[in-house]
């Protein structure tokens, strides 16, 4: 072939040589950035979550309060705006422990449990979904049956029973929530993979000689990235609430470890006269889950808009 000149049409060969004017179209990453930064929900949600993560990680290290130090003489102090003093800005609980410190440690618990439980659910759900969607046939039928069973289980009751039998600890809580929470991952992954399976670049990968495992890792999963991230954030919100519910019922995180759900439960008795004991962790839960949900919805709008392919 003759040399390529970018500006003038090539006339010698009738096979033609490609050249175009400058491209306006952006790379996928640039498109993404543009969409992301103009989506209000995503920004608010992400900022909220980041703020809470920072508070959870840095807060306890910086503040001088101990979440576990009980001081019976100073119990049930109100927060500063209700007559308390700055020694305990958010008041103290029924054993005199500083509430702000407990809220911050509770943030750690919620985030940790939420993240790892969602991860566990993600691993299970995506693995099953990819296998079911890619191979179809008997495997798909078996997985669908598994899914039907899982959906039919009464989740909270089962979680309670499992935690009660095995014994409550944070690992058990993570494991139980994760193992009961993979259905959404499975459904979305499976239908996405069923669609991708038909695309020609999968056939092309096969003809190149890629092994099935290689196809999963390099062709299928990267194209599921967006969906998985979206579902992950949403499921994380659900996991956080599930942990709060279990702790509230007494079959999740055990005292003295502060979990927001547990704090709400502990404050129930004094609810009428010391309402902040339940309101504060309630607000914290609300903020975190709302932030996570906004983030997830925002990601969904940005990463997987309609008609992407």
């Amino acid at each position: 072939m003759s040399s390529i000149d970018n500006t003038l049409p090539e006339r010698q060969t009738s096979a033609g040589v490609e050249h175009t004017e400058s491209l306006i179209t952006l790379t996928p990453r640039q498109l993404l950035h543009r969409r992301a930064f103009s989506h209000w929900g995503l920004i608010i949600g992400t900022l909220t979550v980041i703020a809470l993560v920072l508070l959870a990680v840095v807060g306890p290290l910086v503040l001088p309060f101990d979440a576990y130090a009980q001081e019976l003489a100073g119990r049930l102090q109100p927060p500063v705006w209700a007559g308390g003093d700055w020694a305990h800005p958010l008041g103290t609980d029924h054993l005199g422990r500083d509430y702000l410190a407990r809220l911050l440690i509770g943030a750690r618990i919620s985030l940790t449990v939420g993240f790892f439980a969602a991860t566990l659910g993600c691993i299970i759900g995506v693995t099953l979904g990819v296998c079911a969607g890619y191979f179809g046939g008997r495997i798909d039928q078996a997985v669908s049956y598994l899914l039907t069973c899982q959906l039919a289980l009464p989740q909270i009751l089962l979680a309670m029973a499992l935690v009660f039998l095995i014994g409550p600890s944070i690992y058990v809580v993570i494991g139980v929530i994760g193992v009961l929470q993979w259905s959404y991952f499975l459904v979305v992954t499976r239908s996405a993979v069923m669609r991708i399976r038909e695309l020609d670049y999968i056939a092309s990968a096969k003809t190149i000689g890629s092994s099935t495992r290689s196809i999963f890792w390099h062709e299928v999963l990267p194209n599921l990235r967006s969906q998985i991230i979206v579902i992950f954030t949403i499921e994380m919100g659900v996991a956080i609430l599930s942990e709060a519910a279990l702790s509230f019922l007494g079959v999740g995180i055990q005292s003295p470890t502060p979990s927001w759900g547990l704090m709400i439960s502990e404050g129930r008795q004094s609810m009428f006269f010391n309402p902040w004991l339940t309101i504060l962790p309630g607000i914290a839960l609300f903020l975190l889950v709302m932030g996570v949900n906004l983030m997830g919805d925002g990601m969904r709008d940005v990463l997987t808009p309609e008609g992407r392919h």
């Binding site: 996928p28 695309l199 020609d200 670049y201 056939a203 092309s204 003809t207 062709e219 990267p222 194209n223």
Partner: peptide, 13 residues
């Protein structure tokens, strides 16, 4: 192979 749909025969990522 060379397939029909040039978009779906290339991994978009």
């Amino acid at each position: 192979p060379v397939f029909q749909d040039p978009y779906s025969s290339l991994n978009p990522l």
